[in-house]
Design a protein around this nucleic acid. Structure first.
Lengths: 206, 206, 206, 206
DNA sequence: TATGAATGAGACTTCATTCAT
DNA sequence: AATGAATGAAGTCTCATTCAT
């Protein structure tokens, strides 16, 4: 009835240490969360996928909530890193925006990125929820800042930076729902098409 | 012996009949679902908001799943109706697209529309899940059709209709997350701004 | 969703008075109890069969338990009456026994008789349960008495009267489970066959 | 904080393994079912008797229905085994019948056997109900076959084999209701008396 | 008399989490 | 480190019964 539990346990072949195993757990969790949804993913499902039993998970994590939190943190931090990368480049505002979006597009279609977009933060309690909200808002604010910079430097047409942020993020976030790696388009294809749609919005008027 | 449970039960003031009360339940459910998430909304929460006890709900609905299903159905049907309205107009492809989007924008910010966008259909079992997926896909396909029509009639610039659909829907769907009626912009304001962002995508090249 | 509730309500055509309607309820209850079992029969099922609503039943009965109790009482009283009929005849012990069994056989295949045999008295609470147990025991004791009389008057072979009672009652009670009126044998046919099986037990040794 | 729940949990003294504990649960369930009836037996009652909490039961069984089903299956299988034992012996038809009945009598007075006789299969849903009905019918048909064999080999008087089956089974089944191990007669005593009652039915005419 | 609405009590079941080995 | 066993808390749903009209 239960899948036999021999062999390939967490990291047996990977010779992973405690932290390595913890990371494997988070990866598998992110995968299951995007596959089946968060609330529909039971700890026992996660354990099964890792060929261990439920209590074993508790050697590496403190609670289900922590798993979600960690997964989101990983995703958030990568997004923040993408923001910094763009901001720290020497491009124009428009250039920075495109740098970010090209990176973000790729982020939306891996498990951690998808979780950040699809996870309902209301499943987290108090402090953690707020932490995640702020991390997401940080990205939005930075993008709006970059857009503002683009408007000032003339590379982006005048507009409400927050609204353009929402439009862009909404557009690219949709990737996490419908994009499948097996499809005929690559993320890069879609990214360029999406950027094209916003051409007039993002290009300063001649 | 028990404190009498006076006053405002389901529809007492509205003098609603059975179907009317059922609708009130669905409205309140849609509200709670968007406020707190689906899985986080317990039947007792819903009952409390309606000043009744849990079992009372079962006079009007058969299960919690049915509530979600009905809420989604209401939202889906309105979306389908918006599609038909646009399609049946005598506008150009671009005109039809704008008619739909202006209507859809309003739909994304009421409770039923928000549920359609935010609900994770994986919480539904089998048949219902499929039904909802198809209803959503119907809208996407119709929009892509309208875009195709616009491309052919010259009102919309040549592009991949499905990608433009995803971009537009992603953009407008984001309203359901961040838009609040108490803010300083109206949905209509935002809609026009959003349409402006896509100007070059949607307007045929001169 | 619910069967329309017009026309033929309880006793509309029968012009039955309160007690008459009450009896109709008990008959229908007995029928449902034998059809579907006691615990599986919901009051709403009973009400539906009578084309009334649940609360209406409470004009005629006080509780579900009372229905069962009344049904059992009717069955018990008929059994007691059969016992008296046999006992008061001027036959030999064997004759009386046969008179009872021929009557009892018919009783086991109508709804009230079936309920007496098949109802689990543990569903009744305290006093009523005891009352029903005693009524059933009364029949057993009387039959054993009649057998004792037959042994003394030489019409029945010497044996343990209570054991023979159990054997006979077990045999005839089985009718309530397997006998169907649509079958090819009548109750009377079966009765005679059953009596034949016990010929040596019930006939005194030559 | 809570009074520790020491001592005799499921199988603590018996050092039972998982399957052993599962069997202990079924035994206790069978006991409670015969004591209090099926529907009246709550899972919490069962858990209490085993000094565990309700959820613990779900380590061993999937649902309450499964418990009943398993209990009935155990009883059915023993009955089938009794049938085979009788059929495979080298006795005459009558001899085989007596072998079965002597075994069956003992089966009727243990918890599993009682459940088979007293359980209302209508509490089971669809497939399981049918499965149990067929298992019971299998026994009846085999007994009728054995009786037919007895009639042909001259060891049993000519009669309707199915009717005799019903009479015998009805008689012996009654044991499950009235027989108590504390009484002054043993099952074997009663069995011989019962067989005696059917002497003329079962012995071929001289 | 009859009923739509409402409910209290309680059942089964699930699942994240802890305990003891 | 790992696990089988156990559990507390909670959620959905059922149903006999009462209330108010």
């Amino acid at each position: 009835m239960k899948p036999s539990r021999e062999a390939r346990r967490i990291g047996v072949k990977e010779k992973a240490d405690h932290d390595g195993r913890r990371h494997i757990i988070l990866c598998e969790a992110a995968r299951l969360f995007t596959l089946n949804g968060f609330q529909n993913t039971k700890l026992v499902d996660l354990a099964d996928r890792l060929n261990v039993t439920k209590p074993t998970l508790y050697h590496y994590i403190e609670s289900k909530e922590e798993i979600i939190h960690q997964v989101l943190t990983i995703g958030n931090e990568r997004n923040a890193s993408l923001v910094r990368q763009a901001r720290d480049s020497s491009e124009s505002g428009l250039g920075k925006l495109e740098i970010f979006l090209r990176g973000y597009a790729r982020a939306t279609v891996d498990d951690f990125g998808r979780c950040v977009i699809l996870a309902d933060p209301r499943m987290l309690s108090g402090r953690l929820r707020e932490q995640h909200r702020q991390a997401y808002r940080y990205v939005l604010d930075e993008i709006a800042d970059i857009i503002g910079e683009g408007i000032r430097d003339g590379s982006i047409r005048d507009c409400d930076p927050h609204l353009l942020t929402f439009a862009l993020m909404g557009t690219f976030n949709s990737l996490s729902i419908w994009f499948h790696h097996e499809g005929k388009m690559t993320v890069e294809d879609v990214t360029e098409a999406f950027l094209g749609f916003f051409e007039s919005a993002m290009a300063a008027k001649p």
